[in-house]
Design a protein around this nucleic acid. Structure first.
Length: 440
DNA sequence: TCTGGGGTCCTAGGACCC
DNA sequence: TCTGGGGTCCTAGGACCC
């Protein structure tokens, strides 16, 4: 049996833990740049505010109902997430951290040593709420996809008490008949449309299609696995997360700018900042990358700009895999110069690090290792690795960005021209000493 | 010059997720 | 005026290998 634990309205719930004045009223949390709504309280959902809605479209509605909009505070959400996951790990034999607010639990054997499964799951929910202040819902079922179904229905029907267990054929059928097919995990916008034209409206109807049909219309083997999982046939196992974090296969960092940029210097300032951040994450995971992608995008909402909006370049690092920020910056600078066109206005930039592997394991040596210095940056020696190590240690102790490459620094006394908006941000209640709450 | 089978790696693109 | 960021998996074609 799998359990899927999903935090209710996670970002809003995190904010409410430290700001009780937000209780019982419409609250939304916004994406970077205060662009879109990414988390909504029940009251905000009640007002008809959609997930992903552009903030400017709902600002008035929210104001009219004495609601609140907050900029996203990832330092807070990340830390709250770690606390929730730590509680889950204390209860279940194995936990797969699936996202910042969700985890799959291995529920094997939980009934044998402490009451019924339902009683155990209820006590896990109570414990998470008591220790972190975060409310959750749990779906319990023999496959991950059915656990998602159960979780979805538990959220939709508060009268279930936050838990739904789908472990018999009749419970499964009732649940699948009650769930619109678009709410199934793995059915997105495109597939939902396709299914509708074939008269498939519920999860139950989807579970009854043939293998050939699923393979033809739902992306091959992926679609067939989905159908089998709905039938109770597990196709996906649990991928236990070591130490409560999940190792990524790619690492990226991108941002929309606060304003359009056209100068190469400004773009480089932004891009080098994102690359520094991505490399930091890479080292924190203990990996090196051998693929680097750089991209710059024009405003995709500007009707005067013809597509494509994004130009990108991917490079297999000729010097072999690295996690050295300075080395990566050397490559990225040249890639940016290739992509950049004077006179254009750019709205966003980003980097992706791919082909991740731990250092020094069966490394492929470069064919061009003897190429002239103009082509290759300085090799990744022990000294530069020591430098990165020191950089990370300083930034951990004194705060992110205390020591950083000069390219990422804007002109003295000026806010960086690429800096986005975050006008309604709450404090780092749990991760910054100055922001700690004082009671008394 | 043409002939076949089996395989890897790279790249791009499309779908999905939270 | 104002429209996010970070991921996953799969497929398919081309270059190249033996």
């Amino acid at each position: 049996m799998y359990g899927l634990v999903d935090c209710n309205n996670f970002y809003v719930s995190c904010e409410r833990v430290f700001q009780p004045r937000l209780d019982d009223r419409p609250v939304v949390v916004l994406s970077n740049n205060d662009g879109n709504v990414v988390s909504r309280s029940a009251e905000a959902k009640q007002l008809g505010i959609a997930m992903g809605a552009p903030f400017f479209q709902v600002r008035e509605l929210l104001r009219h109902h004495q609601g609140h909009a907050l900029s996203s505070n990832y330092a807070l959400y990340g830390d709250m997430s770690r606390r929730v996951m730590a509680r889950l790990a204390a209860h279940a034999p194995a936990v797969e951290v699936y996202s910042i607010d969700e985890a799959f639990l291995d529920l094997h054997g939980l009934t044998t040593w402490c009451g019924t499964l339902d009683a155990r799951v209820h006590s896990i929910r109570r414990d998470v709420l008591a220790c972190t202040g975060i409310p959750t819902c749990v779906g319990v079922a023999p496959t991950k996809t059915l656990a998602k179904v159960a979780n979805r229905l538990a959220k939709k029907h508060p009268e279930l008490g936050g838990i739904l267990r789908l472990d018999t054929a009749s419970r499964r059928e009732r649940a699948l008949r009650a769930l619109p097919v678009a709410d199934v995990w793995g059915i997105g916008y495109q597939y939902a449309g396709k299914l509708a034209t074939h008269g498939i409206r519920t999860a139950w109807e989807l579970s009854q299609v043939s293998e050939a049909w699923a393979r033809k219309y739902l992306g091959g083997v992926v679609g067939w696995r989905l159908v089998q999982e709905l039938l109770g046939q597990p196709c996906q196992g649990l991928l236990p997360s070591e130490d409560g974090t999940l190792a990524r296969k790619s690492i990226s960092c991108s941002r929309s700018f606060g304003q359009r940029l056209s100068s190469l210097d400004h773009l480089w300032g932004a891009l080098s900042t994102y690359l520094s951040r991505a490399a930091e994450k890479l080292r924190a995971q203990g990996d090196q990358a051998h693929l680097l992608t750089v991209y710059i995008s024009q405003d995709r909402y500007d009707t005067h700009v013809p597509p494509p909006y994004t130009r990108s370049a991917t490079l297999t690092l000729p010097g072999g895999p690295t996690s050295n920020t300075l080395q990566l910056l050397t490559y990225a600078r040249r890639m940016l110069e290739r992509l950049y066109e004077p006179g254009r206005f750019y709205a966003k930039a980003g980097v992706v690090l791919d082909g991740l592997e731990p250092p020094g394991r069966g490394q492929q040596l470069s064919l061009f290792a003897a190429a002239p210095a103009a082509i290759l940056p300085a090799p990744d020696t022990g000294r530069t690795q020591q430098l990165m190590h020191t950089l990370d240690a300083l930034n951990r102790q004194f705060g992110r960005g205390t020591v950083r490459p000069a390219a990422t620094v804007a002109a003295a006394g000026q806010p960086a021209p690429w800096q986005g908006k975050a006008q309604h941000k709450s404090q780092a209640y749990t991760t910054r000493l100055e922001d700690l709450m004082v009671v008394g």
